[in-house]
Design a binder for these strands. Sequence first.
DNA 1: GTGGTCTAGACCACC
DNA 2: GTGGTCTAGACCACG
Lengths: 129, 129, 129, 129
Amino acid sequence: MVSINKTSSKPYYEQLMLSIKQEILQGVLVAGDKLPSVRELARDLMMNPNTISKAYKLLENEQVLITVKGKGTFVKKSDSTQRDDFRIQMLKGKLKDLFIEAGHLQVTHEELVEWIQESEEMWGMKNED
Amino acid sequence: MVSINKTSSKPYYEQLMLSIKQEILQGVLVAGDKLPSVRELARDLMMNPNTISKAYKLLENEQVLITVKGKGTFVKKSDSTQRDDFRIQMLKGKLKDLFIEAGHLQVTHEELVEWIQESEEMWGMKNED
Amino acid sequence: MVSINKTSSKPYYEQLMLSIKQEILQGVLVAGDKLPSVRELARDLMMNPNTISKAYKLLENEQVLITVKGKGTFVKKSDSTQRDDFRIQMLKGKLKDLFIEAGHLQVTHEELVEWIQESEEMWGMKNED
Amino acid sequence: MVSINKTSSKPYYEQLMLSIKQEILQGVLVAGDKLPSVRELARDLMMNPNTISKAYKLLENEQVLITVKGKGTFVKKSDSTQRDDFRIQMLKGKLKDLFIEAGHLQVTHEELVEWIQESEEMWGMKNED
DNA sequence: GTGGTCTAGACCACC
DNA sequence: GTGGTCTAGACCACG
């Protein structure tokens, strides 16, 4: 399922985090599902277990996964109680930068909005079950 | 005009690039305008000239600025004839990643679109070139 | 200042995190202060730089520190806007467990409250400047 | 009575120890009461007998339980004559760490004290032995 | 078997 | 000089 682009400049562990997050949004992974063990995934992706572990640990900090020593790592039930204002602010900042880049690439705002709608449809988001 | 946040974790040269690009989009800087010399800007912003130079060079590569030996660095007239498909693909990828993050931060697509509209209005963009 | 007990079962990086947090609460470290470089501290504490780095990184995730590549790691200005309910809940759980242990060690609730007051005075917390 | 949260990241054997200790403090279990056999409890909780055994053994070490060969495991009468200073020091250390965390989560000392009082009332502690 | 911690050492990006 | 990423391999704790 998940795959890593070893020629990208984006760190492996970030790619992995995004890949897992995407599968959760798509409903491929749901709350309670067990992720591959760090060793197993490391073998499959031909990476060092430490790198996998780093990704899992960071997703645990973000409350996306939960890991139990000796048992494995699992998708956590999202407690949609609280929004993380700090990270949302970061996100907004990134969108602004992206917006500036778009302007210089002659990408119109309408196109940006279109892209967002595309993503929404293309993935068949299963966010509400 | 341009300013650098020395406590941000974003590299100085990237901040500078974005800052210049933003001013161009806002119409503060227009095609043909002369930018401050590397030394001058380095002094004003209390930064290493190498860092300024790096930002200018990268913006030359992106066809945003143009340097004339012995004269200075200038805002280039954007040739709207061709769009850089490669970089647009990059941008689209970044937007997709941002979209995934948004999903996990419980930011709805509507909010994202709103943010884009906000930026548009707030700046009074003048990119009708 | 900071010191590590190499015979404790508590991980080095956690000890370091607590040590730094304590110094911030005590006012020994204040917003904007530069922490020792990972290499420097690693040398002083006779530890591997990776371990120091891990502690710094985690404190960055907790928004206690901020690090700028090429410059160093600094104490962050605490934005007291938002309380992290999730982590507060964790803390409350730990206090409950501690409370049970106390009961079995014949430590009364009054003693517990006393200990808290002690800490408060002993350190001369500088939380409000 | 005792129950285990299989999705918690706290080790099973620690959860079990705390659960038993809590029931003793609440008076649900009193000195002389017989605990379920290792095998029986393992079956009821769907856990590995080794894990139960480990918890019982550690509670024996802490002088909370006592095992009589061929008869079973029983709640021990607490000898309130001497307090275990070493473990009390440990406890005090943990409270100090917890206190530091509280400070960084903007939890006031008053709140901490409140939480202690809450626990006290909620359980109707019966530790007048 | 699972994940967690720590070390050692290489290479890269930023200033 | 600074921190960041990744690999390799050792040892420990949990079930």
